[in-house]
Design a protein around this nucleic acid. Structure first.
Lengths: 234, 234
DNA sequence: GTCTATATCATGATAGAC
DNA sequence: GTCTATCATGATATAGAC
């Protein structure tokens, strides 16, 4: 063992950073806070990760590499079982969003805290981290997009992409705002304990997402009505 | 006129702050950036608003007071017209989310930039601003909640609150991530120009939201299955 | 590998002249 | 109302001893 304490230090920094980035945002968290709460020296972050940005990237990489593999594995399995038949949309949605939410139950994989951080980061203005995520996991998104295209051959592809986007939003927000729920309601959500609330979030969210994914298509302007409008303008 | 320039200064600070808070987040934007881009003196922010936090609150108040009135006005009108009959869910959703998205077309009311800032802030970790919003506009949320309860008497209230929450998420994300769309897709969304994309966002989003709102209810554990589980555990 | 000490700079806020 | 000058603090990052 070449100083096993360094591994502890590294992990302790990552754990603390994950928690603090979640609580105060990336810009709102200082390296002093991180190193002091992790009980390591201020210089340790730069030694182990090089910079604050690289630390943030590593916080995500540690969790998302695993999640991405799980998602793809779930999809592969289902497709292998289905053979030639197309998958049901509910299967695809579960492979993507169900796998994500079940991650919240595993404290060793970051639990709810990481999920909330992820949800937040999707709308946060730190360009560098969104660019990092977009690059690193684009292949996962593409696989799921293609699966949805096959499962819903009658829905225009552009529409599916938009709805995928809406599903991401509903999920990110639902996760990120576990305490924001006060904004919508003042009365306590009926669930007594946290466990129960998490158990029920998945079926609730799945119903909503599938309802949205399979909703009747919106009616846009037809080419005729566009011509009408153009005629009026002229 | 007692120095009309001060009004300009105030508004210019608000406009600039709105844009920069959107681009870099609250913590990521310094007062020096704001005052320098607004071409006002550094001390002007503290003179006019007292602090950076109060400035942020005013950025939101300026837009949301108007939006809240519009939302309530739309709801009042519909209820007056409907008389005794309950409103259709689509009407309520349009009064809330449609009014919001139509705001994006009005540059004098902040346009798309403010909407994206709002979407971001919903998941952002600045506690003070979320607390401010929750306090100041709770009456609007309550009115819409009650309207949905009446429109959907067969759906449990808790379920409606959750789905309201999911709808907020899908919308915030859709708005906040106008450029994040790259994360889901690499190919350009078919819309040629921004105008068109915005025109089509509303019907697309409305279809999705209504599909989710009216989706079949999720199946939870019945008391029986809970007893089963308890028996197993014992 | 880990620490102390420090360099260098940016931050929010204010005091006081005009 | 607006300015300059400045304070006190906290930021990221690094040099160099151990």
């Amino acid at each position: 063992m070449v100083e096993v304490r360094s591994i502890d230090t590294r992990e302790r920094i990552l754990d603390t950073a994950e928690r603090l980035f979640m609580a105060h945002g990336y810009e709102g968290t200082s390296m002093r806070q991180i190193t002091s709460e992790a009980a390591v020296n201020l210089a340790a972050v730069n030694y182990h990760f090089g910079s604050k940005e690289s630390l943030m990237e590593e916080v995500f990489r540690r969790r998302l590499d695993w999640l991405s593999e799980e998602r793809l594995r779930a999809l592969d399995e289902m497709e292998a079982q289905a053979g030639d038949k197309p998958l049901k949309p509910s299967q695809i949605v579960d492979a993507f969003f169900g796998t994500l939410l079940r991650m919240a139950e595993d404290e060793n994989r970051g639990g709810m805290n990481f999920l909330r951080l992820l949800g937040r980061t999707m709308t946060e203005p730190s360009e560098f981290i969104r660019a990092f995520l977009a690059h690193r996991y684009v292949h996962v998104m593409d696989r799921f997009k293609e699966a949805l295209f096959k499962a819903l051959p009658d829905v225009p592809k552009a529409e599916i992409v938009w709805r995928f986007h809406f599903m991401l939003g509903a999920t990110s927000y639902a996760i990120a705002g576990t305490d924001t729920l006060r904004l919508v309601t003042d009365w306590q959500i009926e669930a007594a304990d946290k466990e129960d609330r998490l158990d029920r979030l998945l079926p609730r969210l799945m119903s909503f997402l599938l309802g949205g994914l399979r909703a009747p298509l919106p009616q846009f302007d037809t080419p005729e009505s566009q011509e009408e409008r153009a005629a009026k303008a002229a």
